[in-house]
Amino acid sequence: MSNARATVLVVEDEPEIRRFLRAALGVEGYRVVESATGRRGCIDAGTHKPDLAIVDLALPDLDGVDVIRRIREWSPMPIIVLSARIQERAKIEALDAGADDYVTKPFGVGELLARVRAALRHAVRPASGVSRLCFGDAMIDLEHRRASRAGEDVHLTPIEFRLLATLARHAGMVVTHRELLTQVWGPPHAADTHYLRIYMKQLRDKLERDPVRPAHLVTETGIGYRLVTDE
């Protein structure tokens, strides 16, 4: 699908970072709107109606997490967060506040563009619109609740299926431990990370070609998991 004229809002106070983001996104055909402060970013998000926002977590005026909350009050647009390595907590906070994905500084443009593409793909299709998903040898039919690997049916327990479906709804993007636990086991279990460790291993054993080095059901250490599908 073509996102050739998608508009990307960049909320980042460092001009040199805005410069290379503008160049990289421009070359890919995106229209770029730049905001140097958090407040400006919130306003630009309203006036320019971008298709996606890239928000730096360390802004001079507003906390990046607040910017995300404000945008989330009225818009479901995908938000990608730029964070420094020492901001592990802020990163998780931002994701739980509604950001869809993150890139850690310093990052390569290739990595950022891949995240942008995944997030825009996710936004374009309605949340329940995709019923089939392929990755590696595996094929998942969300509508009929069936899974197969290399053409052979794979039996998934109801919880395994719910977990896989939650990851599939955010295909290509990170999903935090908290969100997965809340969606699959319910809010009282939001901190029971060990459930995830065990069920993710079961899913990998059933669906990955090499469960020790999974290529699709990927761990984001300290944050959550990501289902990497074939682009």
Partner: peptide
């Protein structure tokens, strides 16, 4: 340090990646 239940398999996986 923020302890949480963790799988060594996943740690190895993410180091290799």
């Amino acid at each position: 340090i923020e302890r949480d239940w963790t799988s060594l398999g996943e740690i190895v996986e993410s180091v290799l990646a």
